[in-house]
Nucleic acid binder design. Structure first.
Lengths: 204, 204
DNA sequence: GAATTAATGTAGTATGCGTTACATAATATT
DNA sequence: AATATTATGTAACGCATACTACATTAATTC
């Protein structure tokens, strides 16, 4: 049913055709949000970057926060750290987690503005956008937690808290001028404690 | 000269007397900025909390960013982590740095909103306020760096980067719901690597 | 070709922001 | 008492924001 209706809508679209492709607009908006942060990007900035007018924007995305939600969706599939690829069951847990931290350091240092799109989004001043980013962050933490829990159930919570805190710090410092080498050195230092923490049944 | 003029002004103030005490207003504003962040606090919020009107505010503080600068000054003297008291030359460097991290964890968890006034301020969207907070942060990092460099000059930069990154992460996570115990556990884990890092001439 | 449907461009709206003009009130000086 | 000085209360200002009403344009459907 829905499929038929959708294909009908796609193949035989009535009315005036779109002058822009919303799917192609998402990566452009993603870059804006990543570079300047959600609050600092205005709808006017986005519409100007897309070469469209506000009504087209709102017809396509509903709201600024709605666009941001789509950006985060796209981010999870294309731009985020490939946790599933790094956290493989056939390798030591500590080694995998250290690689997550190092990969975060590398990625956070790429853009001039720096930092993680999601982690920075969790601190914006718009409730809806912040909740979207928080949901994204919570989902990522759950992946890490489940990966640890499979082999070190007692350490999962604590080590997940630790890893996510370090990642937040890396993102913040990337925004405040730490370069790639600084971030990588910090990530390596932070990672050096993970192996022992996994083995400890209680807090160090 | 200036002293005479100032005392004259203080003892024999012409004109209508102030209805509020700007010095007493600073801690109130400090609480607002700490709880909600610079961007989320409007001048109207501050004037309402102080029971004054905008002209009184601007006569006393010049601007919102000007008030924030005074808040940061007050913060450095009263509310900040007492680095000078913790980083004493008569104790092991690693031990002192771990206490800094733990003290940060404790303080960041006090307020319901959580986090560090300065570190959160470095990420606001107002250039002047952000620069004020950044200057505050840079000064604090310099204290840590100098403390380390006195005994471990080769490790000073790297370990300072590490400690400040962890503190940024603790502040961010305090804002995102981590409680005191979680933050303390993370701080202890992060601290466990410092001793070895100080001894290493090169990166781990 | 007429009707229908949908996206566009123009030009706004309402709201909140940091900030200020201006007349008034309250004090010290003369 | 008259004047000078300073802070106050009222009432805005200019600007930026997210968002929208409405007429128009461009396509499909009948």
């Amino acid at each position: 049913m829905d499929f038929v209706i959708m294909t009908t809508n796609i193949s035989k679209s009535r009315g005036r055709p779109r002058r822009f492709d919303p799917d192609a607009a998402v990566p452009i908006a993603q870059h804006l949000f990543h570079a300047r942060g959600y609050d600092a990007v205005s709808v006017a900035d986005v519409t100007e970057a897309l070469g469209i007018n506000p009504p087209s924007f709102y017809a396509a995305f509903g709201s600024k926060a709605g666009l941001y939600a789509r950006v985060l969706d796209n981010w999870a599939q294309t731009g985020a750290i490939p946790l599933a690829a790094i956290l493989r069951p056939d390798r030591p847990v500590a080694e995998a987690l250290v690689e997550v931290l190092q990969e975060a350091a590398r990625r956070y240092a790429i853009d001039p503005a720096g930092g993680c799109l999601v982690l920075e989004g969790t601190r914006c001043n718009d409730t809806e956008a912040r909740d979207s980013a928080l949901a994204c962050n919570i989902a990522a933490e759950a992946v890490i937690r489940d990966y640890i829990a499979a082999r070190y159930p007692q350490a999962a919570e604590r080590v997940t808290d630790y890893v996510s805190t370090v990642m937040s710090g890396l993102s913040a410092k990337a925004r405040n001028g730490h370069d790639r080498e600084q971030l990588l050195a910090t990530a390596r230092m932070a990672g050096a404690v993970i192996e022992q923490a996994l083995s400890d049944g209680v807090a160090i």
